[in-house]
Each structure stands twice: as C-alpha cells, then as structure tokens.
C-alpha cells in the first residue's frame, strides 16, 4: 500500500497522526501532515485506512499494491 497526503487539501486537522502516528508526521510550524514514507508497512494498513476515513478534508489517498 502506498499513501499520499495532498498538501493543497491538508489543513492540519491532525487526525491522521492521532490514528496512525507511525505513518504520518506533522509539520512543527503549521501541523500539516505528510507521510513518513510513501510505502505503508503491512501492520499499519488498517490504521491508514481509518485515517483516510477520518480526514475532514479528504486529503489522504491510498493505492493498494497490485496482487
């Protein structure tokens, strides 16, 4: 799974980092989110899906690895 945060959409609500703190890091200055790495570890995928569902700005997108 790959994850992306659209920097134009993100407004720093911080829910993603609350839900998946190992995947998303928040900017010190404005709290906007970015993924630590584009590739999501298998054990973090459920949290990342929940972060996608919880983002008020719908700024997070994921793409599943081809089977």
């Amino acid at each position: 799974m790959k994850v992306r945060v659209d920097p134009e959409r993100c407004q720093g609500h911080t829910l993603c980092a609350m839900i998946a703190p190992k995947v998303f890091e928040l900017d010190d200055i404005d709290g906007h989110s970015s993924p630590v790495s584009e590739d999501v570890p298998v054990d973090q995928q459920a949290q990342v899906r929940e972060a996608v569902r919880s983002c008020p700005e719908q700024a997070i997108s994921i793409s599943e690895d081809p089977a």
């Binding site: 407004q11 720093g12 609500h13 911080t14 829910l15 709290g31 929940e50 569902r53 919880s54 983002c55 008020p56 700005e57 719908q58």
Partner: peptide, 20 residues
Amino acid sequence: RTGNRHHSFGLGIHRCIGSN
C-alpha cells in the same frame, strides 16, 4: 466512533487555528 470526520473545527483554509 471511527471514521469521525466531523466539522467542528471548520473546513478549508479557516480551520480553527486553536484546535490543538
């Protein structure tokens, strides 16, 4: 509750600056 993308701090460029 999961998937709780509530609107209580507003949305868009005026998102509550004091939310944290």
